[in-house]
Amino acid sequence: MSSRIEILNDGGFRSDGRKQYELRDITIDLSQQGTADGSAMITHGLTQVLVTVFGPREAKMRSQTLHDRAVLNVEMSVAPFSTGDRRKRSRADRRILELSAMIASTFEPVVQTTLYPRSQIDIYIHVIQQDGSLLPACINATTLALITAGVPLHDFVCAVTGGVHSTSPLLDLTTLEENDVPHMTVAVMPRTRKVTLVTMETRLHVERFRELFELACEAGQTIHKEMKAAVKERTVALVGAIDAGSKPGVVDERDRDVFMGESI
């Protein structure tokens, strides 16, 4: 594979000025989106994904319900303006269906679906911008959205891509790098260090696999800290608001001409 761009220059910097093991900046927005039960927007560098979660709720298609657990339904839409070349992908695009199936199977063992028999959990993924590492961004955003929806999970799922340029491993690839180097995506559950997803679309030398895999698992732990901090912050804010409102005496018992139905 010959390329015009230099993936890693002599000074050890990548095309966007990062070092080998440097991840792109992550921003997380967990604010409420419309009527969704949970939602999260995550930005990995220039890749931006919005996920909304509805449910667990009554299944739309009764034939698809399972009597002992909930069904995870993942639907993905890619904005036409998200890539360099503007083009519209249909919902039935093979690539999109494959990604959604991958995300569904990643979360199948993590979500405690047995608590919600005959229900359905809808996960809607909107890709707003893409610049590499799309699948990890979707997985991380889905984790956060499920947490904000109050869906019980065994653990976070933290995903990252890794690639190898000649013999040097790289983390969190951009589109430029994804096109050039063999890469894989790894999703880990940080507490047990179990891996829920490993996927490769390119061929990677077997001797490089172990090093890269371990590195990606380690990076998952770093991303976990970032995601945990965001969830904690939201929880503190919301619990604080509830506590302030339910403390007796904050709203003093002034002349209460509000009467409760019972007392009339």
Binding site: D16, L23, R24, D25, I26, G45, E218, A219, T222
Partner: peptide, 11 residues
């Protein structure tokens, strides 16, 4: 070893 690049601050 693994850290974040503070680039780009879009939001």
């Amino acid at each position: 070893m693994i850290c974040f690049a503070s680039f780009p601050a879009t939001s």
